[in-house]
Write a protein that binds this DNA or RNA. Sequence first.
DNA 1: TTGAAAGCGCTAACAC
DNA 2: GTGTTAGCGCTTTCAA
Lengths: 337, 337
Amino acid sequence: MKKKTSLKDIAREAGVSVTLVSYVLNGKNIERINADTATRIREVASKLNYTPNFIAKSLKKNKTYTLGLIIADISNLFYSSIARIIEDKAQENNYNMIFGSADENMEKFKGLVDVFLRRQVDGIILAAPAHSEETLKYLSEQRVPFVLIDRFFPSIDDASFVVIDNFKASYKVAEHLHDNQFKHPVMITLTSELHHLRERSRGFEEGGKHFFGDRSDYIITVEEEKLSGEIEKTIKELIYGDRQVDALYFSTNKIAMEGLAAIAKFKIKVPDQLGVVCFDEADAYRIFNTSITYVKQPLKKIGDQVVKTLLNIVEGSKEVEHVVFNTKIISGESSER
Amino acid sequence: MKKKTSLKDIAREAGVSVTLVSYVLNGKNIERINADTATRIREVASKLNYTPNFIAKSLKKNKTYTLGLIIADISNLFYSSIARIIEDKAQENNYNMIFGSADENMEKFKGLVDVFLRRQVDGIILAAPAHSEETLKYLSEQRVPFVLIDRFFPSIDDASFVVIDNFKASYKVAEHLHDNQFKHPVMITLTSELHHLRERSRGFEEGGKHFFGDRSDYIITVEEEKLSGEIEKTIKELIYGDRQVDALYFSTNKIAMEGLAAIAKFKIKVPDQLGVVCFDEADAYRIFNTSITYVKQPLKKIGDQVVKTLLNIVEGSKEVEHVVFNTKIISGESSER
DNA sequence: TTGAAAGCGCTAACAC
DNA sequence: GTGTTAGCGCTTTCAA
């Protein structure tokens, strides 16, 4: 790459000191600088095509105007959507994002946090995997500005977060299915210790008990690694077995895709034979043969809020913000009876 | 954030000079440093929890170990998939990615390039929108290392790129449809001046002429902005109108999603009533009621290669690399007769 | 074996 | 109004 012009170059060319150039170009102390000198400096600067050296500025100010974003997987629709919103919002505030995918793996997560800290990001937005409490505590101790997104940890109470009310989201799904005359709904979710998924389950369990009777078999968990095979088996059993389940609620968009794939494969009729509700929206639902009912998170609000909260902290706020958004059920034919 | 420990802190604590600390911690001139001193320095460093100041290093070395990635839209499946691969590969080489979405908008693209240059990225990977030749020429002139991905511009011949053979990809689709007894195939694509999309069309046109007869109505273009409505109308006309089209080829994954959605909506039988081939893979195809035939790009190869090529340039190579990969047709029931 | 010192490009307190 | 200077944390030349 070509060498950039520096303040020194401009100073030399304009016959003034570096200080003055710095002042003029940053608009500082401008009131007591000779107008002509200022103009001349600006002219030389633009003639030499000056752009400030970001790194030098960062070193001096100890601020990089860079934020880190750690998510599970950038190629997952939910995260890429939120990433896009965060990116735009950061851009708007003159920050850049560096990102990394932790694959729900606590070691990878820790590695990424380390990388970001070494890069001296001004703050981090993170969707933390299970068992990452240690790392989060470390961040707190080091006074690194960070905000949790999507999930939080009850044991970490001094961290800001922006999440949705997962309990209520699922409870409302139970109610929705009841309103639509379904009798035997089951939620399929991932075997996970993540609090937000637990809450999603708890909400459906409570809702189930309230609307469908006091049983304890409203939830079925599947291990993430065996998702594909397991879910086909599970669905077959539920539909054709003794339980006569008449509606399924998939608790994440990943599970939803697998579940819908199985339903398509077995040519199960939705909603006649089986009602379906999915978590999270997806363009892809439209290619399913029935329009899909889904729980919609306010992605834009979440993304904007998380950047706002983080920048507050970066700028010195000591306040811990806990923002909880509500979800909406977008009704499709898949759960209409 | 807490203040970091610096070389100076270590030097003071260990009673040596900063130089020595720098040498030891970077493993330089290690052969002529007293082993005990070295050990002591390392001990102090770890005791004080030293991590090097990346910014200072960058300033000194004029290298940030950061790469920029500009794509159309990170929330688009194709780009988020490739982003994930690039991210991993960069990580592997101790580089970080900052990214931005240009939305196929030349102004936004230019803006992002500017931002990245100001950030002094060591190199840029870009999926450039139409009419961005000016910006690319500027990058060439400034000797900024960059590699084009997905699309290239015939008029810019000194830029490295990693792409697929779009002509051949589409030609093979025509052949595939012919092999499967289809008679009247049409390709639906975007109205676009992008060379790679043009090539995709040209391939199908040539293939069509070769396999289905010398006509000139093999391609239908739709404007991106009106995609949703337009495509429904188009498909209806093609199927139920005079043309008796019996197979559709969707030229991008975005069009494919829209097209499949329309097909699902109209309850068109695939493949009996209509054969379907899509460009690019998508998990979501599985929830369509028929398994989908698609053109598969070697994403992993592309992503790995583009990082490799870029790092070569970053490290001083003057060679212009033009890498063209081939695609594969993954056959599903949607085009089997 | 070790260290002093210059300098990467910039900011800002403090002269003049 | 303008300039001198110190210093952010690091690397590296040169001298000791």
